[in-house]
């Protein structure tokens, strides 16, 4: 089974860029393009890594993160958070909720790919 990523993001161009980047590296990329029902999507897909945007239609990425961390099943799931706002207090909030990594847009492809791999490797090593 190939490694899978769930990308929770609403910007079509960014979805396309990240999908191209990861699929080329052999990942299965699933898309969820809104904030609502993101938890259900995670449960349904049970990805190896989640890439989560902050500003989503319907529900904030922070709320989704908090719920995922409060759920026993997804507590240790590697979550990479993306934000275009880039404020320190957003990073602090995300870290207080237990994010695995916090990344600001724009990012370099290399950085994104490297971080996803790293998070996956770490979770595998732990398990």
């Amino acid at each position: 089974m190939s490694k899978s990523v769930l990308l929770v993001e609403d910007e079509p161009n960014i979805i396309e860029a990240i999908s191209f980047l990861l699929e080329r590296d052999g990942w299965t990329v699933r898309i969820h393009a809104q904030g609502t029902e993101a938890i259900e999507a995670v449960e349904r897909v049970s990805p190896d890594v989640v890439i989560l945007d902050v500003m989503l239609p319907g529900r904030s990425g922070f709320d989704i993160l908090r719920d995922l961390r409060n759920d026993a099943v997804t507590r240790d799931l590697p979550i990479l958070m993306l934000t275009a706002r880039g404020q320190t207090k957003d990073r602090e909030l995300a870290e207080s909720y237990g994010v695995s990594h916090f990344m600001t847009k724009p990012f370099s492809n290399e950085e994104m790919l490297g971080k996803v791999r790293e998070l996956y490797a770490a979770s595998v090593a732990k398990a």
Binding site: E11, N13, I14, M55, A84, R85, Q87, P106, S108, N109
Partner: peptide, 21 residues
């Protein structure tokens, strides 16, 4: 400012990513 930042960074993210490809 936070909004402006978001509005600027979002297209820049696409531009950077695709230009790297």
């Amino acid at each position: 400012l936070s909004q402006v930042s978001h509005e600027l960074r979002t297209p820049m993210t696409s531009i950077r990513s695709f230009s790297e490809f």
